[in-house]
Design a protein around this nucleic acid. Structure first.
Lengths: 181, 181
DNA sequence: GGTCCAATAGTCTCATTGATACGGTCTCAG
DNA sequence: CTGAGACCGTATCAATGAGACTATTGGACC
């Protein structure tokens, strides 16, 4: 799956080294699709073997490897983008796990957790809002990026709403705030 | 990390076999912390080696292994529940990944994706609402479960709002619906 | 009572991943 | 010209994810 990120980034920005991929991943998809950097050195050679990329070696002492997209690679990307079924999302959130078992621990732990999560998600929300505001939604080149950030913002709003409500009133019978139904 | 789920479930429900763990995981934490079933046969023996569980073998032909919590296990769980730092959540959502690269594909693909995601998340939302409604929020025994579901509901509402807005108006310059700020 | 099917229960294997330590190379300030 | 810090890449190893495979058991039906 992370392989498609590699294909996508090269398709969008042109030939790249794994190191550059790493930088691009970090500033774009990392928050909803984290990829350890070592993976970005493993994927491209594998994709090259499959004929989806070609490798162009640099001569210099720091022998960097620049990867180009092939037609087959472009085709694979296209096929993935129009596939009918999309695999389910997977989230692993230690905070939710702790929330699920909070009744086995201290009541004060729960409040601490809620406060910490509230501020963490507030920061993320600010970050996404800043990034989103920096983009021109009319610009076709950053349209996708803008949309992804929009979703991120909505998600973080939900997180903030939840944890803030829980922190403010840990004994409330129910946590769902006013935008419930 | 999945090991704490094992400890938590045994702490809450008493001694269990891996198979029973699997069932409990599926109906409780799986949606925000999926655990492949093989893992639930790997974790308990490892935890037993660490002294956090004890194993009680059954004699019968189907030699099931029932795992009990030790005092050390209870202590480890407690420590985890009150740890100051909570690791970051990790989400891997193929739909968001495709959204991020949607500009490289067809415009109709995006609409199809949005529609599919909208209905998927609507179903999840319904599911969580049903489960949540089935619990008595005043019941201390299911309090945690109820809260986790509340968060799930808020998250799914955000997802539905986003994908519905995108499906309804794919050419809108910005996707954030009315509850923006 | 026998026997067959579905549900239950558990094991195994293998490629991939995550985490992180390690090893080189470049550049620029002092 | 040198060494510190940023840049860049590889290696290693345990843990994980996916799923094939095997075995047991409890009925349903004869």
């Amino acid at each position: 799956m992370s392989a498609y990120t590699v294909l996508g980034l090269i398709a969008r920005h042109g030939p790249m080294t794994p190191y550059e991929l790493k930088a691009r991943v970090e500033q774009s998809v990392a928050y909803f699709w984290p990829i350890p950097h070592a993976q970005l050195y493993r994927d491209p050679p594998r994709l090259a073997e499959m004929g989806l990329l070609t490798e162009e070696a640099e001569a210099g002492g720091r022998r960097r490897r620049v990867f180009h997209l092939t037609d087959a690679g472009r085709e694979a990307l296209r096929a993935w983008l129009s596939a009918a079924e999309v695999p389910q999302a997977e989230t692993r959130d230690p905070a939710q796990l702790r929330l699920a078992f909070a009744d086995l621990g201290d009541a004060t732990d729960l409040v601490r957790l809620a406060r910490a999560q509230e501020s963490r998600h507030r920061e993320l929300l600010d970050l996404y809002r800043t990034r989103h505001a920096a983009l021109d939604p009319a610009d076709a080149a950053t349209r996708s990026r803008s949309r992804v950030l929009a979703l991120g913002i909505l998600q973080e709003q939900a997180q903030v709403a939840f944890w803030a409500a829980l922190a403010a009133n840990p004994d409330a019978l129910d946590v769902i705030p006013d935008e419930q139904r």
